[in-house]
C-alpha cells in the first residue's frame, strides 16, 4: 500500500538524480575550461530519463550509472545509464580543448533551475500526500 503512495515520487526522484548527475558533468567541464586536450561532455536529458524509466521497476538505477560504460572500448552496457556525448569545439583552438564557456554556463544555469523545479514538484507532491492523510478536523 505504501508503495502506491510513493510510486508517484519515483519518476521525480529519477529526474532529480539525473539532474544532479548532469550538474556534476557540467561542473567538470567548467573546471577543465583551460585544460589542454580536454573534450567537454554532456548527455541528452530526455533520452536518459526515458531510459531510466524504461529500465524496468527494479528501482533507482543511478547509483551505478556514473561510468562511461556505453562509450568505453571494452563495451560495458547498462540500459539505465545516460549515454555521454562529446561536445564539438564551437571555435577551433590550438590546445584541443572543446569547452565552450558560454554554452556551459547556460547549461549550468538551466540545469540548476530545472533541478530546483524538480524539487518543487517533489515538495508539492509530498504536500498533496500529507493533505490526503489529514483528517477533516485537523485543519
Amino acid at each position: 500500500m505504501i508503495n502506491r503512495l510513493t510510486s508517484t515520487l519515483d519518476f521525480q526522484t529519477r529526474a532529480l538524480g539525473l539532474r544532479a548527475e548532469r550538474q556534476r558533468l557540467i561542473a567538470s567541464n567548467i573546471a577543465n575550461a583551460d585544460t589542454p586536450g580536454y573534450v567537454a561532455r554532456d548527455f541528452n536529458f530526455a533520452q536518459a530519463l526515458q531510459q531510466a524509466n524504461g529500465g524496468g521497476s527494479s528501482g533507482f538505477k543511478l547509483a551505478d550509472n556514473a561510468a562511461l560504460a556505453a562509450q568505453t572500448p571494452d563495451g560495458g552496457n547498462g540500459s539505465a545509464q545516460p549515454r555521454l556525448n562529446y561536445a564539438m569545439a564551437s571555435q577551433t583552438n590550438l590546445d584541443g580543448n572543446s569547452v565552450d564557456m558560454d554554452r556551459e554556463r547556460a547549461s549550468f544555469a538551466e540545469n540548476a533551475l530545472k533541478y530546483e523545479s524538480t524539487l518543487r514538484f517533489i515538495n508539492s507532491s509530498v504536500k498533496t500526500t500529507l493533505d490526503a492523510m489529514k483528517s477533516h478536523n485537523q485543519g
Binding site: E21, R24, L25, S28, N29, A31, N32, D34, T35, P36, Y38, D64, A66, A67, L68, A69, T72, L84
Partner: peptide
C-alpha cells in the same frame, strides 16, 4: 603552469567527475 585532467569519481566508474 600546465593543467591536466584528474578523474575523481568513485572507484570503478570514475569517468564522470573530472577535476583539474
Amino acid at each position: 603552469v600546465v593543467f591536466q585532467t584528474v578523474l575523481m569519481g568513485e572507484q570503478g566508474h570514475n569517468d564522470s567527475a573530472a577535476g583539474v
